[in-house]
């Protein structure tokens, strides 16, 4: 039984694609067979973050329209054998995705033995975002600790509770998790940024993971390697923790407290 996870947020630029790429890679690294699908029709980007942009021949829309088989369109990751990418189409046709088409692709992936299907949602609350969340079992809501992102996340949580297959068929709730990204313990300490507890209280949800603000994320996307593969990076380690929690492991939060500098490091720097 494949588990369908949507990575969504409402607001753009908060880290949905970065998170989708790292979550999918993290699950595959744990031996799971994973497909990650870009639902952002017209603005394909997951391929770049995954580093497979030059290997896209067929895309999601080609499969839905029967112009290519799923097998032809799935791009096998060069690093992990059990990881596959399905790229978004660059078409400007907004109606390129259909509910029936998406449902068939998801079903075929499940029949093909995939354990996880990660759906990278576009920003906004229009058709692409709606279809990305519609069939989900779980939702990772990516939030920046900032007013507009938090408000949009609340909208998305409302839609997850009403406009999904599970909601319509009263088949249990879509389990939603918060993933706080671009978190800066220093700015929280200064009273300039909403804390984890603030965001949890406002949205009434627990946090799956907290990804610290980090230059490593840009470096990773420059190279086309999901940041979770950077074992040195705090952001990469925080994604690994989040994936472990998604699979039911308990792990303490890291990189969320300001590191107290000792007297000597204050004196001599470092």
């Amino acid at each position: 039984m494949a588990e369908i996870i949507v990575v969504t947020s409402g607001k753009g630029g908060v880290g949905k694609t970065t998170s989708s790429a790292s979550i999918a890679t993290g699950l595959a690294r744990r031996g799971k067979k994973v497909a990650v699908i870009d639902f952002d029709v017209g603005l394909r980007n997951l391929d770049l973050i995954m580093g497979c942009e030059r290997r896209v021949v067929y895309d999601f829309v080609n499969v839905i329209h029967g112009e290519a088989s799923l097998k032809q369109a799935l791009i096998k990751d060069k690093r992990y054998d059990s990881l596959y990418v399905l790229a978004a189409s660059q078409t400007r046709d907004k109606d390129a995705l259909t509910k029936e088409g998406v449902e068939k692709v998801l079903k075929d992936l499940a029949d093909d033995g995939f354990d996880y299907i990660v759906c990278d949602s576009p920003a906004g609350i229009e058709k692409g975002a709606f279809l990305a969340m519609y069939f989900a079992d779980k939702a990772v809501v990516v939030v920046n600790p900032e007013v507009s992102s938090v408000r949009d996340s609340d909208r998305i949580l409302g839609l997850l509770a009403s406009k999904t297959r599970r909601a319509e068929q009263s088949d249990g709730d879509v389990t939603a998790y918060l993933l706080l990204t671009r978190y800066s313990p220093q700015r929280v300490e200064n009273g300039e940024m909403l804390s984890i507890a603030d965001v949890e209280e406002v949205l009434g949800l627990k946090t799956l993971g907290v990804i610290p603000e980090s230059g490593d994320v840009l470096n990773a996307s420059n190279k086309g390697e999901p940041v979770i593969m950077d074992a040195e990076s705090h952001a990469g380690q925080a994604y690994d923790d989040a994936v472990a929690r998604l699979m039911g492991e308990e792990r303490p939060m890291r990189f969320t407290q300001l590191e107290k500098k000792g007297f000597f490091s204050k004196l001599f720097g470092g």
């Binding site: 900032e146 007013v147 938090v150 409302g158 009273g191 909403l194 603030d198 209280e201 406002v202």
Partner: peptide, 21 residues
């Protein structure tokens, strides 16, 4: 006095989100 804009943000969010919900 140290200004705490995070607290302001939280208060504003709680009001608008309650209204929107």
């Amino acid at each position: 006095p140290k200004k705490n804009t995070a607290q302001t943000a939280k208060n504003r969010l709680q009001i608008i989100i309650a209204q929107e919900r």
